[in-house]
Nucleic acid binder design. Structure first.
Lengths: 350, 350
DNA sequence: TTGAAAGCGCTACCAG
DNA sequence: CTGGTAGCGCTTTCAA
C-alpha cells in the first residue's frame, strides 16, 4: 500500500519545514500568519468569548485562504468528544420516489439544525455486526431503517459508543431505541378491508419473487390475512416475478382459483397483472377486483383505473425534530410512534 | 448506569462532559486486561509483526468484549494520516432503479476492496462550498455525481486536502479529475436517429416541468437537436408536468403542431402522453411515432408496445477498480471514459 | 490580546 | 514478547 516516509526522523533533524505535498494544518496557517495555533482557531471559528484585533483576523483568514486550509473534521470531533453526525445506514431494499422525497426532507431539516447526515453503506452486514461498524464512527444519532435487523444488543452497542439517539424505522420497536413504526400490515389490511367490503371472499395476494421486497411483501400479506380471517375469507399467495411471462403463467391458472379479489403488492405489479388477465380474457373488476399500492400516476392511466392504497409519511421535519430533541435530552423513555398512515383511493378496478 | 469512580491524579483538569457516560477506550481495555495500550492495539488489530502470547490475547479480547469496546474510527484515521473512506455525495436529482442497482454494486465492490463508502448529504451546497464540506472529512477518494457542479477549484481543494482520487460522474470532464462521462445527449441522439430513420421530420421533445429533472432533460434535448439539425428536421419542446391534465392540454393542441415523432423523456412520461393522445383520438405510431427511455417493463405492457432507449451502465465493479487503482497510483493522467452506452429497443410505437 | 500546552483515542516506533 | 511514549490536528484553559 502506502510507503511510510520516515518523516519523524527527518523532521527531527531538519528545521520545521514541512514537505511540500502535505495537507496544510492550522499550524501552517499560524506560521504563515505569524500567530499561534490558538489564535487561528479563535479566528476561524469566530469564537465570541475572545477578542482578536481586526488586522490579526485578516492576516489569519488570508493565510488560510492562500494555503487552501480546510479543518480536519475527525480531529475536531476527537477533541470535542462529540460529533454532530447523524448516521443513516442506507436501506438495502430499493426505495420508491415517495421514500426518497421523505428522506431528502429529513436530511434538509437536519442540516438546518446543524447536523451532518451521513449515509453509510453497510452491504452484507446485519444486526450486531452492522451496529459495531456504525459505532466506530461515533455518530451522535443513528436512524436505522428496519431492514437492517438491529436488535437490542445492537442498540446497546451504539448507546455505549456514545450515540445519544437511536431510532429505528421499521415494523417493530426494538428495546432501548425510539421506534418509528412503519408497519406494512396496515397497508395490507387497508386493501383487504376494501375488497371485503366489496364482497370478495377469495383474495389473492401478489408476492414479488424479489428477495429484497420480502421486507414489504410479508407484512402486507400478514395484514391481508388478519382482515380476511376476521371476515372468514380465503387468502391465496401468488408468487410473481416482474416479467410478462410470469404474469402470463399466473393468469393462465386464474380461473381455477376462482379469486374474486386480488391485492397486487403495488401499482406496478398491478399493471403487470392487469395486462396478463386482460390477455386471458378476464374482466376487471367483474371477474376479479384489483387493488394496488402507491397511488402512482400510472394507476390513473390504466383502464380500468386502478384502485390503490396511498401511504402517508409524516414530514421529514418532524423526524428531524425528534432526533434533535432526543440528542439534547437523551434521558426520556423511548417513543414509539406509528408513522404510516394509509388511505384507500377507490377507482374503477374494484 | 455504571459509574466508574476512576480518580486519575495526573489529570489536572477535567475535559468537557467527561463525567457522564464514559465510552470505553483502549486504555480501559488495557487496564482491565492488565496490559498496556500498545498490547491492546496489537491484539485487536492482529498485527502480524508482533507476537503476543495466547493467554494475553485471550485476556485482552475478553476485556474488550466485557466493556463493549469499539475502536474510534476518527482517532484511528487521525493517527494513520489516511482513511479508507470513499465519499459519494448523494445525488440531488432523483435516481431510477437502474442507477440504484449500479450504485449498490459499486458500493459492494468497494467494500470488497476494504473501502468504506459514505454518502454525504450536501443539500443546498454546490460547487466549491460543497467541496469544502467534503474536504473536511478527508476522504481518500471522492466520487461526485455531476449535478453537484464540482469545478476545477473544487477538485483542487479536494486534492489539497488529501484526496488521492477525484472522480466525477457527469456530462463533462473537470480539469484535474478523472471523469466518467455520462452524457445524456447520447440518449437523445439515439432516439432521434431512430425517429429520423423512420422518416420523421417534425419531432417533439417532452421536457418535464420538474426542475430536478432538467439535469437529464436538457442534454437529451440537445442530443435530439444535434441529430435533427444534421438531418434538417424540426424540433419542438413540449413542457409537461407529470399529471393527466398537463398531458391532456398537450394532446389538445397536438394536431396543430403536426408532429410525426415524439421523444417522451422516459417510459413513464411516454405512458402518460400516450394515454392522453389516445383519448384525443390520435393513433400511435400512424399519426406520431413515440420513443421512451429506460426500457421499463411497463413499456412492454402498453399497447402499442413502447419503443425505448435502453441505457447500459458498466458494472460497479469496474468503477470500484478505477477508484482503487487511482488511490494506489495517484500520479497518472486523468482518465476520461465514456460510461453511457445506449441501445434502441424498437417496438410497436414507432 | 495572544501564546503555551494539555490531551481527545489511537498506533508505531524503540527500549527493555 | 511487552511497555513506554510520541504525536496525528484540533480546541480550550490558563498564564503572560
Amino acid at each position: 500500500m502506502v510507503q511510510i516516509p520516515n518523516e519523524q526522523a527527518t523532521r527531527a533533524q531538519v528545521p520545521p519545514q514541512r514537505a511540500a505535498h502535505s495537507v496544510p494544518t492550522s499550524a501552517d496557517v499560524a506560521r504563515r500568519a505569524g500567530v499561534s495555533r490558538a489564535t487561528v482557531s479563535y479566528v476561524l471559528n469566530n469564537v465570541p468569548a475572545v477578542r482578536i484585533s481586526e488586522p490579526t483576523r485578516r492576516r489569519v483568514r488570508e493565510a488560510a485562504r492562500e494555503l487552501g486550509y480546510v479543518p480536519h473534521a475527525a480531529a475536531r470531533s476527537l477533541r470535542a468528544g462529540q460529533s454532530r453526525m447523524v448516521l443513516m445506514p442506507s436501506p438495502s431494499a430499493p426505495v420508491g420516489a415517495l421514500y426518497h422525497r421523505f428522506f431528502n426532507e429529513f436530511q434538509w431539516a437536519l442540516s438546518r439544525l446543524d447536523y451532518t447526515v451521513v449515509q453509510y453503506g453497510s452491504v452484507g452486514l446485519s444486526g450486531d455486526d452492522a451496529a459495531l461498524a456504525w459505532a466506530e464512527l461515533r455518530p451522535v444519532a443513528v436512524v436505522a431503517p428496519g431492514a437492517h435487523e438491529l436488535g437490542p444488543q445492537g442498540v446497546a452497542i451504539l448507546k455505549r459508543s456514545g450515540a445519544r439517539a437511536v431510532i429505528t424505522v421499521g415494523p417493530r420497536a426494538v428495546e432501548g431505541a425510539h421506534a418509528l413504526l412503519v408497519d406494512h400490515r396496515t397497508v395490507g389490511r387497508c386493501a383487504a378491508e376494501h375488497l371485503l367490503a366489496r364482497g370478495c371472499r377469495r383474495i389473492g395476494v401478489v408476492m414479488p419473487e424479489l428477495t429484497a421486497l420480502e421486507f414489504y411483501s410479508r407484512p402486507r400479506l400478514a395484514g391481508v390475512r388478519e382482515a380476511a380471517e376476521a371476515a372468514g375469507a380465503e387468502v391465496r399467495e401468488l408468487p410473481l416475478a416482474y416479467e410478462e411471462e410470469s404474469a402470463a403463467r399466473l393468469a393462465a391458472r386464474w380461473r381455477d382459483w376462482g379469486l374474486d379479489g386480488v391485492f397486487a403488492f403495488n401499482d406496478e405489479y398491478a399493471m403487470l397483472l392487469m395486462a396478463a388477465l386482460r390477455d386471458e380474457g378476464l374482466d376487471i373488476p367483474a371477474d376479479t377486483a384489483m387493488v394496488g399500492v402507491d397511488d402512482l400516476v400510472l394507476g390513473r392511466l390504466l383502464r380500468p383505473r386502478l384502485t390503490t392504497v396511498r401511504m402517508d409519511l409524516p414530514s421529514g421535519q418532524e423526524l428531524a425534530e425528534l432526533v434533535d430533541r432526543t440528542v439534547r435530552h437523551p434521558g426520556g423513555s423511548p417513543v414509539v410512534r406509528d408513522l404510516l398512515g394509509t388511505t384507500l383511493v377507490p377507482r374503477e378496478s374494484s
